[in-house]
Design a protein around this nucleic acid. Sequence first.
DNA 1: ACTAGATTTCGACTATTGACGAATCAACGA
DNA 2: TCGTTGATTCGTCAATAGTCGAAATCTAGT
Lengths: 117, 117
Amino acid sequence: MREFIAVTKALADENRVRVLMALRHGELCACQIQELLQLAPSTTSKHMQILYQARMVESRKVGRWVHYRLPEPVPGWEFITESLDWLERNLKDTSIIQADDERLKSLRAKNRQELCP
Amino acid sequence: MREFIAVTKALADENRVRVLMALRHGELCACQIQELLQLAPSTTSKHMQILYQARMVESRKVGRWVHYRLPEPVPGWEFITESLDWLERNLKDTSIIQADDERLKSLRAKNRQELCP
DNA sequence: ACTAGATTTCGACTATTGACGAATCAACGA
DNA sequence: TCGTTGATTCGTCAATAGTCGAAATCTAGT
């Protein structure tokens, strides 16, 4: 129950929901997430920490850069992937997410070089 | 998106999740919910208000008594019933909910008379 | 070792939220 | 009408949460 509530609390913020929706297209670097959300680096880091602790994202470090992605399905933790499916089904056509998806195209293309050199 | 976040915020509290799980067995009166949660009447009322405004519960008034129940499915609001299904699938076997279910048996039986005379 | 860049941690501030008791409102019965 | 009861609203407090800038940490290159 405690882990479940950690997930529901993680979902109770629009910026974090936007991050999860962005990650459904594939891994993103912390700098790309920060650029997407237009938040301070520290705020972005704090949000990612909450998602990480709720096991809603996984991360790997490449040099200075941290890449986040959605988690692999794990037996016993189906409620996490189910919640992510629930987000996708219901939010993929909303204007905020579609605007984010649009911006993500350029963010993913060019900012691999400019944002994460 | 705003309504969706209202739902995720409503889910971000254990007591409110417990209420929703309790309501899956059928309608409850405010006094029964209050008894189940062991919270002050004002706190209980505030929680139910949050659930009501997120459209996660419906209510009807009978004299002094207010009865709450889970909402009927409404086209365009599938994310609500989907969230409730998500709760049920993943929490019905947890100890907190099972303990609640046990207490609900007596609450539903006797307290129709003692709690809501 | 020094510099630069990315990220995290820290501290402060503001906003939000959960909890309570008191006050208020609505309904009911004498 | 008045007193009682159930529920809601209001006000207060403490805790939590989102945000920022500064500082610290980590990594890489020279």
